[in-house]
Amino acid sequence: MKERIQKLLARAGYGSRREIEQWVVAGEVLVNGQMAHLGQQISTQDKVSWRGKTLHLESRLQATPKVLLYHKTAGEVCTRTDPEGRPTVFENLPRLRQGRWVMVGRLDVNTDGLLLFTTDGELANRLMHPSSEIEREYATRVLGEVDAEMLHRLQTGVELEDGPAKFLRITDAGGEGANHWYHVVLAEGRNREVRRLWESQDVRVSRLIRIRYGHISLPRHLRGGHHEELDVKGMRRLYESVGLSFDDGSLQQERPRRTVNKARSEPTSERGDFRKSSTPRPRVESREKPYANARAKSTGRPNLTSSKPRSRD
């Protein structure tokens, strides 16, 4: 059965659809010795190469897809290589025998929090596509005075340079004085959108942490710079949330994966299915620790507990 080239290569885990489309347009992909074109129908029987390297589509498609949760820290960049020599999120990911990690969205260099990686480019495309309306939730520390009228404008919509934008929900997360924490929810992933929305109201975000992507929350035990593989139940639910099916096959008998310690490459225990905790809180590698609301009133620090997302299944 033939599929469009960008879709088949994405399913095989060679990249996201957008990345593959860029390769095709740049003339870097050949099919049976001829330059490929966007929308071209191919199958696993075709000989496909990228930048001179043969792509093994059939073996890639037979491999079980993986999804990785990663706790990004401020200062890391969301690229495979950085000309300035800054640390990248890919440096801390486990090596793959087959496939490559495809990043689901990105976070800017000064933002902490949850990043998803997968070996299934089609899944990545669905999770990032605006039509899926996947919620992203952030804990934001805002510097400046915020009033009820301002919060109302941010939820009804303001005009940014790339079009109208708004928060779906805003929740007060505690704090006193000039620095106050809020949890905000978006259903899209435009560049620096959270920061630009607050800046449109003449206040500034001094700390930003993504604590949820879709139904997956940042596990509170997952430290900055560490990763954790999603288990079978979590994979099935994630695929279903974007209208895809996940064939676990023999994975039913596999034991849950374990967290890998970046510094020593030693495994530590995992808590299993991330859905069991309806209000997980991230553990942030910083002088500032997450606190409950009651204590936040006296300390000025936030409650980073994620609010329960609406069901999309």
Rank of each mutant, 00 (worst) to 15 (best):
H180I: 10
Y182N: 08
Y182K: 13
H183V: 11
V184I: 08
V184K: 14
A187W: 06
E188P: 00
R192E: 00
R192V: 01
V194G: 12
R196W: 01
R196N: 10
R196M: 08
L197M: 15
W198T: 04
W198S: 02
Q201N: 03
Q201I: 01
D202I: 00
V203H: 04
V203S: 04
V203W: 02
V203Q: 04
R204E: 08
R204V: 02
S206E: 11
L208E: 13
L208I: 06
I209Q: 07
I209V: 15
I209A: 11
R210N: 07
I211S: 09
L218H: 10
L218A: 06
R220T: 12
H221N: 14
H221S: 10
G225H: 09
H226D: 14
H227Y: 05
E228G: 07
E228S: 09
E228A: 14
E228P: 04
E229W: 04
D231T: 00
K233T: 13
R236N: 09
R237N: 03
R237T: 04
L238H: 12
E240P: 00
V242S: 09
V242F: 12
V242K: 14
L244F: 01
L244S: 09
L244G: 12
L244M: 15
S245Y: 00
S245A: 06
S245Q: 06
F246R: 12
D248H: 08
D248K: 11
Q252T: 12
Q252R: 14
Q252V: 12
Q253F: 09
Q253W: 08
Q253A: 15
R255W: 04
P256V: 09
P256Q: 05
P256S: 07
R257Y: 03
R257M: 03
K262W: 06
E266D: 13
E266I: 15
P267M: 07
P267I: 08
T268G: 13
